[in-house]
Amino acid sequence: MSRRETQRRMLLLGAFALLSCAGFVLSIAKGSVEIPLEEIWQALLGAGGGMHEQILMNIRLPRTIVAALVGINLSLSGAILQAIMKNPLADPHIIGISSGAGLAGIFVMLVLPEQGWLITPVAFFGAMAAALCIYILAWKNGIRPIRIILAGVAVSAFLGAGISALMIFYSDRVHSALMWMVGGLSARSWPHAEIIYPYTVAGFLLAVFGARHLNILQLGDEMAKGLGLRVELTRLSMTAVAALLAASAVSVSGLLGFVGLMVPHAARLMMGSDYRFLLPGAALLGMAVVMFSDTFARTAFAPVELPVGIIMAVLGAPFFLFLLRREL
């Protein structure tokens, strides 16, 4: 590894980190009430007081933290999946996370609307169950990426039918479900941050530990085996890490699309495909992207607050087409 190349990557990591800091400050300063920087500083040091501090500590700060954690989780999950599926268009949707979480979450929302607290844990189990299901369906003398993708499409279609059916049976209550389907961070607060952060920490550590293995996996299954990598075990365990990361994100933010596809790709274009750098890069960039997008979604059309999922889709769909033209 040349020193110059390493230096360039470290600089990029630094730039992403600065971008994240900017996104963080902007996200807690902007909103229906503008809060000046000095007050933010005082409140964070615990020396503030009054209304602004209330808004900061109970609304803006937790929401911003949730946005950051969701961004990290979805980006890492996408980056891992792109390596193990060897497919540039792989993202958390493919391994069934979204459809599983979607059906389970919407079931709670529509059938047991007074049990709102159940949404997150149930969505989480739904996501894991769907991922497991797809894995079992795709298993035949080992795992082939193409079978996971096809099984993912089939299971997603099946679960999507369930979501549609639920929405028709309970059409009077569909509004909240719609917001969740789009993916948003509205009214996310400390309890949501508490749900997601252990997964972010554990997921990040496991992913970074696995970075060298992911690098080797990109050389093709046979070569990876020849170099002494246990290919099936690596693929299975890293899929589990990706599923945990994505499921915990989906369970607090709904079906927020495109982050897991877009961010790892953008990071790869800038930093290259060495996962030892790519994973931290994608985490920092994902954090920044979701914080900026959520701030924009909250403030651009005030007093109407858009779900951040709409912003991500507006950015993400053209990006997806760009990748399609470029790589396939």
Partner: peptide, 12 residues
């Protein structure tokens, strides 16, 4: 060590 027929590497 083995060099199989189908090998690939990321473009960079």
């Amino acid at each position: 060590a083995v060099l199989p027929q189908n090998v690939q590497a990321p473009p960079d």
